[in-house]
Design a protein around this nucleic acid. Structure first.
Lengths: 228, 228
DNA sequence: CTCCGATGCATTGTATACAATAGAGGGATG
DNA sequence: CATCCCTCTATTGTATACAATGCATCGGAG
């Protein structure tokens, strides 16, 4: 699925990757203006690659564009959070059913290496690495469907959802829980039990959503919009 | 859902819309190189807006980009067709269930105006208009879910699928069939019968897919790639 | 004091100039 | 005759110059 030839590097591509990373991790806060010249300095290019990166991110739903006003890191609303998890529930619970039907045992076994993520609290890099590994796990499952369209849609969605976890909410300590959920899912996949796998995924997604929603209710009233 | 204020017009936005339309209707054949200067002439701008439009379409999966080689209207493969319809089946059959739960009677009633599309064979503009109206019907249903994330994903997917219908395949005469299917779906929605609505959608999508796949098998071996 | 409009500045939108790359074609060499 | 390499050209990638727009500021009118 990933291109075997090393893609030619362009500044535009580098800026896109860097800017996307920074938007996903909220290095650019939701709603913050992305000034072309500032970004050009930050990423070491001229305005042109910055603009191309912004346009791509706009199309991904990570950036808003207002003509003659500028680009802005997309705001996060409770509506977006609710909608995103609802969509993810549909897509991913179906994805695992397809994975059960189509993945090889070897592919499923590889998941185990991605299922053991942990992090130490109050340690941002560790937390970011944990989220990254968790995302890789889910993307690996999505890839196993063999459906590239589904994979790409789910990948983009999961990336957008990543942002919610960087809001600085107190989500409690969910490393251990997530690890158990991953192990249960991997087991269900290996057992070729689609319904059990789907159930795992549904629980996991609801659990993530509930953690965020609960934390939002308590402390996040000012962090996110109410969904215009 | 659509912004009430008239968005400022920029050349970049105009080119994006025009180029997208032309890619969707295969005015640019799958695989055809999109030369920046040519497009700039065609759409009456300089290369900059063309490049921005290409970047956006790249992110939508309608255009491929190869650094220092150029942009290309994305090729169509049987794999993409199969994957797209499989994904659409999941998304849209779930969407109608949500629509049943959340849409108002008035919204559903508005569907009737979009359900009566017809076309005359061998008449390209009529055919294009028919497909357009059909798409609007499905987008209206997607909108009724109230889930913007789902709507946008489904909209992009349905747009990509539109391309398949411009391949020039002999799909038979499906105007009447589609109209009946739309009426059945509208009725199911009004009756608030989610399962019946989902069944309608599944049948409709399978029917479309089968028409295309069957026609491809007969005449389209050279029109599309075999995957990868 | 408030409101309104003009003016200036910061920022984005667009065009163009220049640099880098890919690919084709041709000529020398074995 | 095949092969390699060089050059030349078409095309894209990037930087920069200029135009258009939005916004804040300031000054005057009421």
């Amino acid at each position: 699925m990933s291109s075997p030839v090393a893609r030619k590097r362009t500044i535009s591509e580098d800026v896109y990757r860097a800017l996307k990373r920074d938007v996903l991790t909220l290095a650019h806060a939701p709603g913050a203006p992305l000034k072309e010249h500032e970004l050009a300095d930050r990423y070491g290019s001229s305005r042109v690659p910055v603009r191309e990166a912004c346009r791509r991110l706009q199309q991904e739903g990570l950036v808003d564009s207002i003509p003659y006003k500028g680009y802005f890191a997309r705001r996060i609303s409770v509506e977006e959070i609710a909608d995103s998890f609802e969509l993810r529930l549909v897509l991913e619970s179906h994805a695992v059913v397809l994975a059960v039907e189509r993945a090889g045992d070897d592919q499923i076994a590889e998941l185990k290496a991605l299922a053991d993520a942990e992090y130490t609290r109050e340690d941002w890099p560790s937390y970011a690495a944990f989220l990254e590994k968790n995302r890789e796990y889910h993307l690996a499952v999505a890839r196993m469907t063999g459906n590239k369209q589904l994979f790409q849609v789910l990948r983009d969605l999961i990336e957008r959802i990543q942002r919610f976890f960087f809001l600085g909410l107190d989500l409690g300590d969910f490393g251990a829980e997530m690890r158990k959920e991953h192990e249960a899912l991997t087991a269900a996949l290996l057992a070729r039990d689609g319904e059990a796998a789907a159930q795992c995924v549904r629980e996991q997604i609801r659990s993530s959503r509930d953690r965020i929603m609960k934390a939002l209710g308590k402390e996040g009233a000012d962090l996110v919009g109410k969904g215009q």
